[in-house]
Amino acid sequence: MPMQYKVDVLAMLKETGYNTNKIRKEKIMGEAMLQKLRSGQMVSWATLETLCLLLDCQPGDLIEFVKNTE
């Protein structure tokens, strides 16, 4: 996978007051997106935009491109 997370996004959300219960309750994102974050899978651009708004950051603060050396 050429894209990967640079940080633990769920931990960052928790630090800013957004635990998974609050995210679900306020319908910020669905369980499927939370599960993708838990497993390190890439989320949609819309979800990435939401994460950047909540965390007050840029996409490059969350993800990085890693060359495949195979």
Rank of each mutant, 00 (worst) to 15 (best):
Q4S: 12
Q4F: 07
Q4C: 06
Q4N: 09
Q4T: 13
Y5P: 00
K6P: 05
V7N: 03
D8Q: 13
V9I: 15
M12F: 07
K14A: 13
E15D: 14
T16W: 02
T16V: 13
G17C: 11
G17L: 05
N19E: 04
N19A: 03
T20H: 05
T20I: 08
T20C: 13
N21M: 08
K22C: 00
R24Y: 09
E26W: 09
K27S: 07
M29E: 03
E31S: 13
E31Y: 07
A32P: 00
M33S: 15
L34N: 11
Q35V: 03
Q35K: 14
K36H: 15
L37H: 13
S39H: 14
Q41M: 09
Q41R: 14
M42S: 10
V43E: 13
S44N: 10
W45F: 14
W45K: 15
W45M: 11
A46M: 10
L48Q: 14
L48E: 07
E49G: 12
T50C: 10
T50G: 01
L51G: 04
L51C: 09
C52K: 01
L53D: 10
L54F: 11
L54A: 02
L54S: 08
L55V: 03
C57V: 05
Q58Y: 11
Q58V: 06
P59R: 09
P59D: 04
G60P: 01
G60H: 03
G60L: 01
L62W: 02
L62C: 08
I63N: 00
E64A: 08
E64H: 02
V66L: 05
N68G: 00
N68R: 06
T69I: 04
E70T: 08
E70K: 12
